[in-house]
Design a protein around this nucleic acid. Sequence first.
DNA 1: ATGGATAATAACTATATACATATTATCCGA
DNA 2: TCGGATAATATGTATATAGTTATTATCCAT
Lengths: 233, 233
Amino acid sequence: MRGAEINTWQAVQTEVLRRIRAHIWRPGDAIPHEEALAEEFGCARATVNRALRQLAEDGLLDRRRKAGTRVTLNPSRKAKLDIPVLRVEIESKGMRYFHEIVSREVAAPPLAARARLQAKPGEEHLHLVALHMGDDAPYVYEDRWINLAAVPKARKVDFTAISANEWLVRNVPFEGGEIAFSAVVATKRDAAILRCAQGDGLMAIDRITRRAGQVVTAVRQTFKPGYQLQAQL
Amino acid sequence: MRGAEINTWQAVQTEVLRRIRAHIWRPGDAIPHEEALAEEFGCARATVNRALRQLAEDGLLDRRRKAGTRVTLNPSRKAKLDIPVLRVEIESKGMRYFHEIVSREVAAPPLAARARLQAKPGEEHLHLVALHMGDDAPYVYEDRWINLAAVPKARKVDFTAISANEWLVRNVPFEGGEIAFSAVVATKRDAAILRCAQGDGLMAIDRITRRAGQVVTAVRQTFKPGYQLQAQL
DNA sequence: ATGGATAATAACTATATACATATTATCCGA
DNA sequence: TCGGATAATATGTATATAGTTATTATCCAT
């Protein structure tokens, strides 16, 4: 598999990678500067830069002007995982996607949710509980708050026709957010909705989405038992 | 925060991003080609390329030769999470790190583990169970198999002095692997080791590390209750 | 020694240019 | 109409060159 590059910059990159892995250049060591490597590999400095820059982005090298480039001391493996829209994820597994609204109301969020939403007391939010199904079996259910001050249009959207997730992605430009994964134990309520046993271990994903400083939406998605989140190293 | 670029390519990137988010260029739409954008922004094509290439890597654009560049239709959020060596993670939280070996034996893995290890019957592996502590409280425990055929040196390493995790990172060049996150329910044994209640929801991480086609090590790490894995969107 | 100006350095950015490559569109003959 | 050769095109890669910027090292005056 390795060594199948046609590119110069990829060839340089894998050779550098090889030297790091073979401990020819060890963690903490400085490696030759771009110009020297360019000469060694018989290519332009820009090409070396392209190779090294990406390795730095991946966390394998530390680069600083004038100080040079060194092999990262505590290499932390970076896993990239992509969180697709649930419909896409379910359909990509060959299942038929369907979703239903369990409850919908406009209300002021309770104290616990208010902090996450950065909401002032009395501010109205749309509270949605929805269930996403794969082949008629519950796959994940979500408990979501949407900030109506940030997204007034959401008040009159028919979320049975399009999931909140998808509607938001399509209609609300957003800028960032946080995501956290944790393990929870199925409550009686969880079990009833997901049709699993009370006490099962469930993966939960908490997400907050921001736009212009405001929290647009905060959601907890609770997955069916046995759900695995996979990534490549 | 936005608009604080000094670079041309970053300025181009955020402007493109803005147009995507503002739905000036909508999902599925083709955007102008590099040369046109270069002219519009008054910069070189290489600069536009740099900006767009990264957006494509982030999954916001789809680019194909001759076909051009379009806004991704089903934008799946990509979260980057880094998995540091446990010692570093624990120490970075201001806790004192300590680890102990619960059990250690050389054995042929049982059938269930053999598949994951791609091991032939009778092949010897090192089986390690270790507990990582933060401030004297259990943080995570791991059940690990190390392929002695791939890493013969491991047989006589003192893993009380350095954790297997760290020793492997430092001493075995590796090429790739898989990682999976799931939620499990604490068994009696889990509870005893982690000093938690049986039935607690625990985050589990399964990892397989390869080198030259061989599986170097397969490990399951089971975290203390309440553990959260966080990432930025 | 200490601090501050100055020089040296290595990565960072940008440009023009050129060629490679994948993919689409077109055209032509069977 | 179908298939295959051919042209057109947008992105991908590589290079030489040049200027920018952050950081370190040095040197000098106090």
